[in-house]
Design a binder for these strands. Sequence first.
DNA 1: ATTGTAAATCGTAATGATTATGAATTAGAA
DNA 2: TTCTAATTCATAATCATTACGATTTACAAT
Lengths: 140, 140
Amino acid sequence: MNITRAWEILKDNGYKKTDKRELILNMFEDTDKYLTARDLLTVLKKDFPGMSFDTIYRNLSTFVDLGILEETELNGERNFRMHCESEHHHHHFICMECGKVKEISVCPMEMIQEKLPDCAIESHKFEIYGKCQNCVHETV
Amino acid sequence: MNITRAWEILKDNGYKKTDKRELILNMFEDTDKYLTARDLLTVLKKDFPGMSFDTIYRNLSTFVDLGILEETELNGERNFRMHCESEHHHHHFICMECGKVKEISVCPMEMIQEKLPDCAIESHKFEIYGKCQNCVHETV
DNA sequence: ATTGTAAATCGTAATGATTATGAATTAGAA
DNA sequence: TTCTAATTCATAATCATTACGATTTACAAT
C-alpha cells in the first residue's frame, strides 16, 4: 500500500485530508516495521506538541477499518503497519530485535481444515518470532 | 496436568500450599477452556469475598513460570489454562463461542525454517479460531 | 504443641494502554 | 466567503495489570 492509494481510499469513504493523518501515514510509509500508538506519539510530539492520544488512536482504527493498515497484538500492545500489497494470503516473520517483517508464503490452513471437519474456522494467527539476518549477527 | 502433579511442582520449588491456590487450581481442573483473571475473580469472590487482584495475578504468573499453566493473549487479555499433558509439540483450535480447546498435531515449522535460512527463529504462535462442532449448530 | 520466620494474602493505590467526551478548530463544498 | 460536518484538542474515564505496606498464615525447627 502506498500513500497515494491510501488517500484515494480515505477520499472515497468521505474522510478529509488533514495534516495529522498525513504525518501518521508518512511514518508508516518510511518503514516496514510494526509501530505502536506510543511510537507514533513519541516521534510526532516533537514536531507537533499538541498531538493528542485521541487523534492517533482514532485514526489508527480508521485506517485499519479501511484496510490501509493492518494490526497485530505483540506483548499486549496493538501494533500497526502498512497493509501488505500482496494479493495472495501469507504470514509474517517478525524480528523481535529490529522489528522488521518478512512475508512467508507457506500457510498450513488447508491441512488444518481436514483435521477439524465439523468446526467452522473463522480466522487464524500464524506468526514467527526471532532475529533476522542482520540482528542475528550482532553481538548483543 | 493434574492437581496432584501441580502441588508436587509447587512443593519442589518451595511454594506453600494455600487455600487460595487450591481454589484457583480447582477452577482449571474443572474445565478445558482458557480463563482470564477476571473469570477467576468473578467466581471466587462469591465464596471468598476477600479474594484480591494481587492473589490471582501473582499466582497465575507463578503457575505459568512453573509450567503448571499455559497462557495466550486473546483480545488483549491474558488467558490461562492447564498446561497440556501431551509431550509432543502441538497447537490449538479455540472455539470463540464456548471457549473449548482442541489440540492440533500439525505444525508447519519444519517447512518454515528452510524458508528463513539466515534467521534465528525463537518462537511462533499458531492458533485457529472459530466455532466447534457444538457451537456451529446452535442457532444464535 | 509452640514459636519464629519467610511466604502469602489483603486492601488499596499506581501504572499503562486504550477509549470516550465535550468544546474548539478546520477542511472542503456551496 | 460562509456554512456545516468532520476532525482535533485537552482531559477524563475505563479496563487490565502490577505494585506496596500491613497483616496473616504455612510450616519447619525447637
